[in-house]
Design a protein around this nucleic acid. Structure first.
Length: 577
RNA sequence: GCCCCCGUAGCUCAAUGGAUCGAGCAGUGCUCUUCUAAGGCAUUGAUGCGGGUCCGAUUCCUGCCGGGGGCACCA
């Protein structure tokens, strides 16, 4: 039982049943180590003044004898609370006794490796779909959000005990392949594609769109080629497979560099054979109907526009493929949840998908669209593959690593060139990921080179550096520590311990809310607290040997929280920096 | 026209309906003979506008203004 859980249980024992308690950690110790607003809600229920209720609760919390309801609970100790105050207009501020903090911290040692892990997901599967690159398109800066956020959420869910299926739903089907094939047949050459596949295919695609503006008949030609592809035309199949294979080679190279992995690589094309069946099932069940030659699912009751599931030329559309994929996922994996990490451009699409799924009523899984804002260019406009210049993802990664390498060269000459390269990639890639994960995903991100390449302050290198410094001290100490945290009584010691103890709660919150920024913020604050500790508190230099051992134990734990926390965000920690 | 997201400091971002709205960058001034200065300390500076609900609103409701995205044969 964590310190937070003990406090919560204690409060619960003296308030009306069934109320959730929110325990916040005030910015400033003058408002307590923990604070709760529970009195406001109880007061409202009872119809009394909040301050009165707060006083009543505060007094009860301080009573030395355990209330009957918690008498049997072993965690009860009168010494949990140092001070409990009711503060106008009705907050209850709680200060924890050093002994309770030290004790809770000592508990970490019992299973240090698993500190922060939970079992809330035990026996449950979650499918997390992310990245979803479109074949024959270069991944650009805008594509990275899904990849990074999805990977971090997958890590967090695993840490929370879920069985996670990391799913890369490749965009490898659809009308754009008709266009691409048409473009290739018109202007392409085998040699050029082999030489630089993605670049060449991208050019063909862009050219097709440009020419389409002048010559609208091309659009029909693209659609025709896609129809042929779906009908099994041999030549088109061959071209499609070729484009797909070449693209995947490129993507896998980038994933490897980003340290991103997937369990399933099943894309849209895998469901091509199921589509007629899906359309039929929807029609048979009276969910779908013909309209203007196409097949739609009316969603008037849901106040949504009708969902198109088959085009009037009989060709399929991505919603239908998503429905088929959903059925496949539910049948094969029986997941408790399916998370779609896709930008908020597609909000309507997922509302429609979920609405159709509900009508089909084979979705006992919880479905969630984990949406995020767009990566905008410096002009605050959408980055578009068709619309000209975008920052290519590999170029972005290379630049970040190059800049990091420069910084390393300035600082350290002792490392070998190979070590420097390795460190540069760990820091550069880390910075790239952290920059995204620290922000509330709802907001659009304005891409900014200067910001990306800023390695000071709230950034991955700051966290990595804090961790590396602490571990450096630990590495310098000799022998094994048997830390006794009751030796740590200074404000700095206790403040750092209290911050470290919040880790499990923060991870849970991330899993529950599907946001990563609270975890990033927490790690940043922990690093700041640790840096302050580092600057002001002697550790190895502490003359008191018992306290020295305890402090070494403390920073060891803090360093592993930083490292584990960063790992959850997909960020590695270098050995030296 | 309808729907969704967003609007906080010069810039980029925080804030389950909570207390005096937090950071980073940029600016200013300190701080390396000391466990790594990618650090620490100090300091300047903000909730788009108008109503409403609430003990309490950046947060919820509502009307404007501004930015981004979407609205059946693209994904």
């Amino acid at each position: 039982m964590t310190l937070r859980e003990k406090i919560t249980a204690k409060i619960k024992s003296i308030i009306p049943k069934g109320m959730d308690i929110s325990l916040s950690v005030p910015e400033n110790d003058t408002q307590g180590h923990y604070s709760t607003n529970i009195a406001f809600r109880i007061a409202k229920q009872k119809g009394v003044a909040p301050m009165e209720e707060a006083k009543r609760i505060a007094t009860k919390l301080l009573e030395s004898a355990p209330p009957k309801t918690v008498a049997k609970r072993p965690f009860w100790q009168a010494e949990l609370f140092e001070r409990v105050e009711a503060v106008s207009p009705g907050f209850i501020n709680i200060w924890i006794k050093p002994k309770a903090i030290q004790g809770a911290f000592q508990d970490i040692l019992k299973d240090e490796k698993n500190f922060g892990r939970s079992k809330i997901g035990k026996g449950k599967k979650v499918i997390i779909e992310y990245s979803q690159p479109n074949i024959a398109k270069r991944m650009h800066a805008g594509h990275i959000r899904s990849t990074i956020i999805g990977d971090a959420l997958a890590n967090i869910y695993e840490f929370a005990g879920y069985k996670v299926i990391r799913w890369n739903y490749i965009g490898d089907w659809g009308t754009q392949f008709g266009k691409l094939i048409a473009a290739y047949k018109l202007w392409g050459s085998k040699k050029e594609v082999e030489k630089d596949p993605i670049e060449t295919l991208l050019h063909l695609y862009v050219r097709f769109h440009n020419e389409m503006a002048k010559n609208p008949s091309l659009e029909a030609r693209g659609q025709e080629e896609f129809k042929k592809l779906e009908a099994g035309d041999k030549e088109n199949r061959k071209l499609w497979k070729w484009f797909r294979d070449e693209s995947l080679i490129e993507y896998k190279r980038i994933y490897k560099f980003l340290d991103i992995r997937f369990d399933v690589w099943t894309g849209e094309s895998a469901y091509e054979k199921d589509l007629q069946g899906i359309v039929l099932e929807l029609k048979t069940k009276g969910i779908a109907k013909n309209s203007e030659g196409a097949v739609i699912v009316p969603l008037d009751e849901e106040k949504l526009p009708p969902a198109l599931i088959q085009k009037s030329d009989g060709a399929s559309i991505y919603l239908t493929r998503d429905i088929a994929s959903l059925r496949h996922r539910i049948r094969k994996y029986k997941p408790a949840k399916i998370l779609y990490v896709v930008s908020n451009e597609q909000s309507l699409h997922f509302e429609q998908l979920f609405a159709v799924a509900k009508k089909l009523s084979w979705n006992n899984a919880e479905l969630a669209h984990v949406k995020f804002g767009l990566m905008l260019g410096e002009n605050h406009k959408k980055l578009s593959t068709r619309g000209g210049l975008v920052v290519a993802l590999d170029e972005l990664i290379e630049s970040m690593v190059r800049e990091t390498r420069k910084a390393i060269d300035d600082k350290y000459s002792k490392l070998s060139s190979k070590e420097k390269d390795l460190t540069a990639s760990v820091i550069g890639v880390g910075a790239l990921k952290y920059n995204d994960l620290r922000e509330n995903r709802n907001s659009d991100i304005v891409f900014n080179w200067k910001h990306m390449l800023d390695f000071t302050g709230d950034s991955a290198p700051y966290l990595q550096y804090a961790c590396v410094r602490l571990l450096r001290i630990v590495g310098k100490s000799r022998g094994k520590n048997q830390p006794d945290f009751s030796k740590l009584t200074a404000d700095n010691d206790l403040a750092l311990m209290r911050k470290a103890l919040e880790f499990p709660h923060v991870v849970l919150t991330s899993a529950e809310t599907l946001y990563t920024n609270n975890l990033a913020l927490y790690l940043y604050e922990l690093a700041t607290t640790a840096n302050r500790f580092y600057e002001t508190t002697p550790i190895l230099k502490d003359n008191n040997s018992a306290r020295r051992a305890a402090r070494l134990g403390l920073i060891q734990i803090v360093a592993s929280i930083l490292r584990n926390g960063l790992t959850l965000l997909g960020v590695k920690t270098p050995k030296k920096m």
